[in-house]
Design a protein around this nucleic acid. Structure first.
Length: 823
RNA sequence: GCGUCUGUGGUGGAAUUGGCAGACACGCUGGAUUUAGGUUCCAGUGCGAAAGCAUGCAGGUUCGAGUCCUGUCAGACGCACCA
């Protein structure tokens, strides 16, 4: 054995072994309990960053730990390979998106292999590969057939100068990131998925997801945004249309003094056509088209709006009231029309003040602080209904029910449930995505491509000018085709799919990644699913996880999978930051995995990243901290080296000869217990590693005395096995140097001996009125009464309680005694 | 703006169930080893002279609060076409 830890030699040696022997390749084995560990697959930007290293290190510890505990572990990796950056590279650097992407994947594959991760690489998928997107298209067609996909007109960001559609990300402060022009909106007919049909199930199933962090479930609940309320219908004076509003406060309908429509409300242009209001209204609509939703709904902004010259009629009072359009009303939520009740809604209050509109209080909260005739702000409190005709005197909570019932009877409204969740817009006017396998025929309408013709391949004769609605339009071979139903000339859909679709079912494809005959074998998916542990960035808490859940439910309804939920347990990791800020090029605080691996090796990088913080928290990168982790591995190396030089390696049954042996045996067993529980139950790898460090410190102390070779050999062997999931290369090397058979990744996880964890004597604290006063030693098996007895005999405690009235004494076994005194 | 989360020594963090705040590590200080630097090994290290005081800030519940409750401030993440 070499006296120095040569990490680069060791790491490349074992990576080569793993590459050749494929120890992490798995197949279905009905006799073994399976465990599916999945890390969110990366977008192949070309460079691995520390967030990736963190994600995959966490997953690798879990996968290796479960393998050592006897599970049949599925641990796959792949690439979310479609997306905007490849297209930008094409536009800016004139490189084919495919070439750019496959090059990046090759580079990232190389970097991932340097980390020593236990993947079954034979299951690698890349969503941009036809063998993957063929089945993406197949799933789309099944969804279409099931009525889950439909076309609808909607708005996109449009740069008038570039003549192209922009992603929200490409819009900076309302302007095009490329040319700086003011971005507008453009209407396009686009594909949607009816995720709202699943709103209730997506919501109620959350209760079953015990293995998910509460915060993620709360975020998803809020995102779905279920609210119970009512619809009410308002006729428009001298215009043949009825406005339907959604409100959660139908009890305040008598207080409605105006109506507000979203600027995009479809009939608004027609209502103002040819009137004196037309110019102002159309100008306002245009202005709103340049604003983001976040800006529009900000409650701190001064309210803006325009009167459209029409009046609505309150269905209960018959009173007429002005109709406005205003940016704080969104077309995408509710019905795009709201009743303005300034007395009881703050946004309506602000609007009424601005436009000098009437404020009618209709709920009396019986609060002396609130002057109903001179409101300073809206009063959302509950109370008694007033100024509301037949409903006066009711409790407003009862009125919410009653008014909705009365409206229903009179045909002017009804109770309803509204969700904030909107249908999923999946069309992208982009090249580098899965082509939507739909064909438009003048006679048959939108029909899917025949399944035997899949995949609909992305055309390669495309120009990337950065202009136009979709680059695919420039292909001379793609668009024209024949109708799969009637055979007449027809045209293909030129939009591609949102890349979120690709990543909504990849966990299923991993179960049977090389299947050319079907999307996946049901038997294989039934064996491996669900994912036992999913790990990824908390930034995906809502969208990706909601979409993947929706896919699984839809596939469940199609009979393709046996469960409604794909991810049993979820671990959301925090970001990697440096000096208190996100690592970014512009701040110049980036540390790349490559430079750390070069300088210290992958084991050190993994160890530091797992040791520096628990997975859920942000991780503050520290170069000094990395050196500390490197030092620890060197310390281990030297300890084993010295052991092999000086002692016989005879692990196994040992005698406890003295206090030193007893102490080491205790620490050894305690460490096994601690590491097992921290990894298995809590994912607190930082405390697991610190426990191992304490064991090493104890062993350094121990070896200075009279060494019990059997015990010390056992400790050496155990520590190598305990460290194996964290630092796989060095432990494999040490295992070999110690002369053991087989591989350390294949060893059985150690168990601990309860007997050796028992202590004869423990130290507890004695408090008086909650303040620590004394420490006493008591027998390990002392009862409450024993504890109090021993404490009361202590000289210091006697002195402190003398002449005082002891009110009570609280004894917590194994921890403390608190004596409460008076006087 | 809305939603969610996080605030503990000089630093990263520990305290798992309301029960000794600061494990482990970094940094720093001192010592040993070394021709010297580095490495390594050992010891010390929240503040305070002490009584005591300390977990962003202000209250509250409790025998006891970093942990629970209310309010507040600061930062991070998400907000539907980045992935």
């Amino acid at each position: 054995m070499k006296d120095r830890y040569n990490f680069s030699e060791i790491e490349s040696k074992w990576q080569k072994v793993w590459e050749e022997t494929k120890p992490f390749k798995v197949t279905e084995d009905p006799d073994k309990e399976k465990y599916y560990v999945l890390e969110m697959f990366p977008y192949p930007s070309g460079k691995l960053h520390m967030g990736h290293v963190r994600n995959y290190s966490i997953g690798d510890v879990i996968a290796r730990f479960r393998t050592m505990n006897g599970y049949n572990v599925l641990h796959p990796m792949g690439y979310d390979a479609f997306g905007l950056p490849a297209e930008n590279a094409a536009i800016q650097h004139n490189v084919e998106p495919a070439e750019w992407t496959w090059g990046n994947i090759a580079e990232m594959n190389r970097q991932l292999r340097q980390l020593g991760l236990s993947y079954d690489w034979d299951r690698e998928v890349a969503t941009a590969h036809p063998s993957y997107y063929k089945w993406m298209q197949w799933i789309f067609i099944q969804f279409f057939k099931a009525g889950l996909a439909y076309k609808k007109e909607s708005q996109v960001n449009w740069c008038p100068s570039c003549q192209t559609v922009l992603a929200n990300e490409q819009v900076v402060d309302g302007c095009c990131e490329r040319c700086g022009s003011l971005v507008g909106k453009k209407n396009l007919s686009q594909w949607y998925f009816k995720i709202t049909d699943y709103a209730e199930r997506l919501l109620s199933n959350l209760d079953k997801l015990d293995g998910w962090p509460n915060k993620v479930k709360i975020m998803q609940r809020n995102w779905i945004g279920k609210s119970h309320g009512a619809e009410a219908q308002f006729k428009i004076q001298d215009y043949d249309e009825t406005l339907t509003v959604f409100t959660t406060r139908i009890d305040t309908i008598y207080g409605t003094t105006f109506m507000v429509l979203a600027p995009e409300y479809p009939s608004v242009p027609d209502m103002v056509k040819g009137t004196e209001y037309e110019a102002d209204v159309m100008a306002y609509i245009d202005r709103c088209a340049h604003m983001s939703e976040i800006d529009r709904t900000s409650t701190t902004n001064e309210k803006t709006g325009v009167f459209i010259g029409k009046y609505a009629i309150n269905p209960f009072t018959g009173k007429t009231m002005p109709i406005f359009i205003a940016d704080y009303v969104l077309m995408g939520y509710g019905t795009g029309a709201v009743m303005g009740v300034p007395a009881h809604d703050q946004r309506d209050f602000d609007f009424a003040k601005k436009f000098d509109l009437e404020i009618i209080p209709v709920i009396d909260p019986h609060d002396p602080e609130v002057d109903l005739n001179n409101l300073k702000e809206a009063c959302a409190a509950e109370g008694t209904v007033i100024n509301s005709g037949e409903f006066n005197g009711m409790d407003n909570k009862d009125a919410i029910q009653k008014i909705a019932e009365v409206a229903d009877e009179r045909g002017i409204g009804r109770k309803t449930i509204n969700y904030r969740l909107r249908d999923w817009l999946i069309s992208r006017q982009r090249y580098w995505g899965t082509p939507i396998p739909m064909i438009y025929c003048d006679d048959c309408g939108w029909v899917p491509e025949k399944e035997e013709n899949l995949p609909v391949l992305l055309p390669t004769d495309v120009e990337f000018t950065g202009k136009g609605e979709s680059p695919i339009v420039t292909s001379k071979t793609f668009v024209d085709t024949v109708c799969p139903v009637c055979g007449k000339p027809a045209k293909r859909e030129v939009d591609t799919m949102d890349t979120f679709l690709d990543s909504s079912w990849y966990e299923l494809r991993y179960c049977d990644a090389r299947n050319d005959e079907e999307v996946f074998s049901k038997d294989k998916v039934d064996y491996w699913m669900n994912v036992d542990q999913y790990i990824g960035g908390v930034e995906h808490a809502i969208m990706h996880l909601m979409y993947a859940r929706f896919f699984q439910m839809a596939l469940y309804d199609l009979g393709l999978v046996k469960d409604e939920e794909p991810f049993q347990n979820l671990l959301t990791q925090g970001m990697v930051i440096k000096d208190g800020a996100k690592m970014s090029k512009s701040l110049g605080n980036i540390v790349t995995p490559a430079e750390i691996i070069e300088k210290y090796g992958a084991d050190t990088a993994r160890l530091f990243i797992l040791f520096a913080a628990p997975p859920e928290r942000e991780l503050d990168w520290s170069d000094k901290g990395v050196e500390g982790s490197f030092r620890f591995l060197n310390r281990i190396w030297r300890m084993v080296y010295e052991f092999l030089e000086k002692y016989e390696n005879i692990p196994g049954k040992y005698e406890i000869r003295n206090e030193a042996d007893k102490k080491l045996a205790y620490t050894l067993n305690y460490t096994i217990k601690k590491v097992t529980e921290d990894v298995r139950d809590r994912f607190n790898f930082n405390t697991a590693i610190s426990a191992i460090m304490e064991l090493v410190n104890e062993m350094y102390r121990y070896k200075e005395g009279d060494v019990n070779e059997a015990l010390y050999s056992t400790a050496i062997k155990t520590i190598v096995v305990l460290l194996a999931p964290f630092v796989p290369h060095i432990t494999e090397e040490l295992w070999q140097e110690l002369g053991y058979e087989g591989y350390v990744y294949d060893q059985k996880w150690p168990t601990y001996n309860e007997e050796e964890l028992k202590k004869d004597e423990i130290e507890i604290v004695v408090q008086i009125n909650g303040k620590n006063k004394e420490k006493i030693n008591i027998p390990g098996d002392a009862t409450r009464e024993d504890m109090i007895q021993i404490a009361s005999e202590n000289e210091k405690i006697k002195g402190l309680t003398e002449g005082k009235n002891i009110v009570k004494t609280i004894a917590v076994p194994g921890r403390l005694i608190n004596i409460v005194v008076k006087g």
